[in-house]
Amino acid sequence: MELDRDNLIWLYRTMVTIRRFEERGIPETGQRRMSASVHSSAGQEAVPTGICAHLTKEDYIASTHRGHGHAIAKGVDPKLMMAELFGRTTGTNKGKGGSMHIADMSKGMLGTNGVVAASVPLAVGAALTSKLKKLGRVAVAFFGDGGANQGVLHESMNLAAVWKLPVIFCCENNGYAESTPVEYALSVPNVADRAAGYGMPGFHVDGMDVFAVYEAAGQAVARARAGLGPTLMECRTYRYYGHTVFDNPLTYRTKEEEAFWRNRDPLKLFRERVMPEGLLTAEELDRIDRETDQLMEDAIKFADDSPLPEAPQLYEDVYVNYPKEMMKRGANMEI
């Protein structure tokens, strides 16, 4: 799987877009007092980028509460995501979902999800659709080291293995479930060790190195596309901020640890790899940075200029077909 110049530019642009979205968009969302439930994936960019590089628009992903990066890597428009965070009608979800439910069915993005590991069986179901309809699509189920201990993940891995479904179970192990360290909560040294219990390949990779993720994901995706069944891949990564951006991670981890991981920043590692080899120049990469900065300013403006939902939207899209008056009958609603 040789990466050509366009592939390299895509990898870098995707990672920078995720980083800038988190570092620019989340504080702006906070300033607008729209939500405190926003989880930054800054630091983890290499994982969704290295995996989604192998996916087509038709493939599926199911994501987590820390899912902006997954959405961006799968091709969801950051402008529409920004509008969603700002609660606007132009958002991916018309302002009905916010950060924890960003979905774009036209991009195979089955949603970020507010319940840990709850989206995993959705990916299994999408893979079942692909298998039964012979669509040749694969599905990636993202979850964290916290999700690794949820029962539904284990049931889903067993089911996908029994039915040989084209699923990639991708654990983003960022070391912490909220404040609980992974080594406290995990009964084995690696999440990937658990693959053996379900008869599927399992391995862990350096989740800060997009090239390592890309190469490993290539094998897992190829295996799924060939009809050989699921794979469990664990990516060791780190989130730069707290569980949400409003809590203080130094209540459970050290500055030295943060510095260690910051020194292994995925954008920095990428530059250190491609520039000496002459694959891309500093000027080219700097230009991508600037273009992405501008994209974020445009996205913020687009979101701010977009309308907030009108009150009757409250009753829209609960069902495809249901008597609307039932939603407010007896509730003494004002609208």
Partner: peptide, 20 residues
């Protein structure tokens, strides 16, 4: 299915949201 209601009910929901 295996005895895994969370997985197969969830998978049925995922399949139903993708064309089944």
């Amino acid at each position: 299915t295996p005895l895994s209601e969370a997985a197969f009910v969830g998978a049925a929901i995922g399949a139903s949201s993708t064309g089944m």
